[in-house]
Design a protein around this nucleic acid. Structure first.
Length: 357
DNA sequence: TAGGCCATCTGGTCCT
DNA sequence: AGGACCAGATGGCCTA
């Protein structure tokens, strides 16, 4: 079943995230290292075709059979010096007909390129919808979407490998690894606010988050909470200092059994972003190494089944036993609320069933 | 105003 | 030959 999930849902995302993100992270270095001439022709280059250019040059030079009468060598004299003679098709004069055809080809190519990029952006939008912290109003940038997707996949893989739920801090750390500070704030804020609402009070304004993959989801139900004020929770800002946060006594939040989940599938649903959360510099590698302080928090929660049709389950959310750098899984995260708003709910329901069995 | 993000244009390269 | 893909350049928009 899990293999089916991966085979149906994750391969595309994984390929996108792994390949694109890694490539995008190194592209700048590659460009600098290669130290090659940019394809863009500067003003000083406009009078002379670039060496080695083949197709575009031949297009501009005009290689249509019906214009042979205009064929004329243009670059012979300029190569008579020490420079080696340029290869490739000989440049021809551009007749108005050739210019027109070239423009038409270029326009067609531009249209195709626009379509291709639109498709790419559409796929990226779909990816945004299945990674944590989706919002229609404040979209993640392309690069951050890919990075988050990669982290999300790695986190899920870690969870599957360990067969345990992660604690919230580890989960946030995994998701936010390598993300920019604003995105880290956004993602961690989503998780944290979910957790905060989870722990303190129902959403009074009916705001709902889509936090697919989050172990902590907003639910407009009453619950009881034994820990309403954390010294690290900053009232008004919603900020939760995940670096320095040490949960003292445990708290628990209990959802009513059989409670219904937010209607993430509602077409008018629109995610909302939380206020910033302090993460002290975006969880760098060093920061992601769980300190003893980070590991000391202790809390417990009881999960409910989040699918409307499924009875709730209370799964204790145990203390963290983070080791090996903190990015590990302690518990199995609930997938009840994962991605139920889109058309790929079935695989996740299978996964839910897996975690409920 | 600088920097980030994005859409678009463009030329080069590869593949069918 | 034509299309897909890629990457650089450019300009617009937005935000801190």
């Amino acid at each position: 079943m899990l293999s089916r999930l991966f085979s149906e849902v994750l391969p595309d995302v994984q390929r996108l995230a792994a390949d694109w993100v890694e490539d995008s992270e190194t592209v700048d270095c590659k460009v600098k290292e290669e130290d090659h001439e940019p394809c863009h022709l500067g003003d000083e280059d406009l009078d002379e075709p670039q060496e080695g250019s083949s197709r575009a040059e031949s297009e501009m030079a005009g290689d249509d059979d019906d214009d042979d009468e205009a064929e004329e060598e243009e670059c012979g004299d300029e190569n008579s010096g020490e420079k080696p003679k340029k290869r490739g098709p000989k440049k021809r004069k551009m007749t108005p007909a050739r210019v027109e055809r070239s423009k038409m080809r270029r326009q067609k190519a531009n249209a195709r390129e626009r379509t291709r990029m639109h498709d790419l952006n559409s796929a990226l939008d779909n990816l945004r919808k299945v990674v944590p912290c989706y919002s229609k109003t404040q979209k993640l940038s392309k690069i951050e979407t890919l990075r988050l997707a990669k982290n999300y996949i790695l986190a899920l893989g870690e969870i599957l490998r360990n067969g345990k739920r992660p604690d919230v801090v580890s989960y946030v750390q995994m998701l936010c690894k390598g993300l920019s500070q604003p995105t880290t704030n956004l993602v961690a804020g989503c998780l944290q606010l979910n957790t905060r609402n989870f722990l303190t009070e129902p959403c009074s304004d009916g705001a709902r988050f889509h936090m697919p993959g989050s172990p902590f989801s907003v639910h407009p139900y009453p619950y009881r909470c034994s820990r309403l004020s954390s010294p690290h929770y900053q009232p008004g800002t919603g900020a939760l200092n995940l670096r320095s946060h040490t949960y003292g006594s445990g708290y628990e939040a209990v959802y009513p059994p059989g409670g219904t989940s937010p209607d993430y599938s509602s077409p008018d649903y629109e995610g909302q972003h939380s206020p910033p959360v302090c993460l002290n510099g975006g969880l760098t590698g060093r920061q992601q190494e769980s300190s003893e302080t980070d590991r000391n928090y202790h809390y417990s929660m009881h999960y409910s089944g989040l699918t409307a049709s499924r009875p709730s389950h209370s799964i204790p959310f145990g203390p963290s036993g983070a080791r090996n750098g903190g990015a590990h899984s302690e518990n199995i995260p609930p997938f009840h609320d994962v991605h139920l708003h889109h058309d790929r709910a079935a695989p996740y329901e299978d996964l839910n069933a897996f975690f409920h069995n």
